[in-house]
Design a protein around this nucleic acid. Structure first.
Lengths: 149, 149
DNA sequence: GTCATAATGACATTAATAATGTCAACTATC
DNA sequence: GATAGTTGACATTATTAATGTCATTATGAC
């Protein structure tokens, strides 16, 4: 099979891969009270600290109105708390509660353990190379899709 | 960065990759009268020949009721035609019309050209290795997600 | 051939995810 | 202070897909 065909297959594998990953993540969330989208909020806050809703939206590349819903859910469940925002009185910072921090740390750690187990069959170089290719392909597709007509 | 972290990133890239790919495919379909899901039907029929709706559903791993809708759209647009099914009188084979065959061939060819252009930066080995990794990761995630509790 | 069971197309309902629209309150900038 | 932009809140719409139901018709065992 030539390179173009292989790339074609790689691109079309993105959907099955994503679906399998989502199913796996979802499975890891059972009995935690979290949904996949709430998890995304917590992960963002763990990685980058407390921030207002519009910033979460920008980083996740999702509409802020939708992120607002996601954040509201995490607030209602007590995984996040609002903190005064020195830079904006109307838009509080959303930060992890102790409960939320512990939970998301636990979850991501378990996911990482899974990845470690899954990497058994590959070399570091293979995996790193695969990531580079996927990154590059994604970037190129994005520029193509976004071109002016 | 260690292997597990790299794999983790690779898995999480599946969503951006898929979204970029879909946007690109959609862009290629403008003015063809096709939608992405109709395209999926035509591609299946081009690759594997005429088949009844339930078989398309099985191969696409989608509910047959939903595939029925997709197929009905392609029939309404004249991209597919019903043919008598010797193995089942109630469930006709769905096959490509001349128009549909020409269209899907044209579309996939253009997509393949795009892939060829995109492969410029990588070696055959890199791309092939990336596909192997993605395949294996997807398969492992699927088994994990499907395990009994 | 008859009958039980399964497959099929058709249609309806529900759900999840996300985009879009709107607005009043508020903030920042000039 | 006037004006334009930001934000949270809420409503509406769209897309994609799963699920439920049912009458019709095949299929397969006997």
């Amino acid at each position: 099979m030539n390179k173009a065909q292989t790339l074609y297959e790689l691109v079309w594998m993105s959907r099955p891969l994503m679906q399998a990953a989502e199913a796996c993540v979802e499975r890891g969330l059972t009995d935690t009270g979290l949904t996949v989208r709430m998890r995304a909020v917590l992960e963002m806050l763990l990685a980058h600290g407390a921030m207002p809703v519009p910033e979460i939206a920008a980083r996740l590349d999702i509409q802020r109105q939708y992120v607002q819903l996601m954040v509201n859910e995490t607030l209602a469940s007590g995984f996040t708390v609002q903190q005064p925002n020195p830079r904006h009185k109307r838009s509080p910072l959303v930060g992890l509660s102790d409960q939320g921090r512990e939970l998301i740390r636990d979850i991501t750690q378990k996911e990482m353990d899974l990845m470690a187990a899954m990497g058994a069959g590959f070399s570091d170089a293979e995996v790193a190379s695969a990531l580079r290719v996927v990154h590059a392909v994604t970037a190129k597709l994005k520029t193509l899709a976004g071109e002016a007509e």
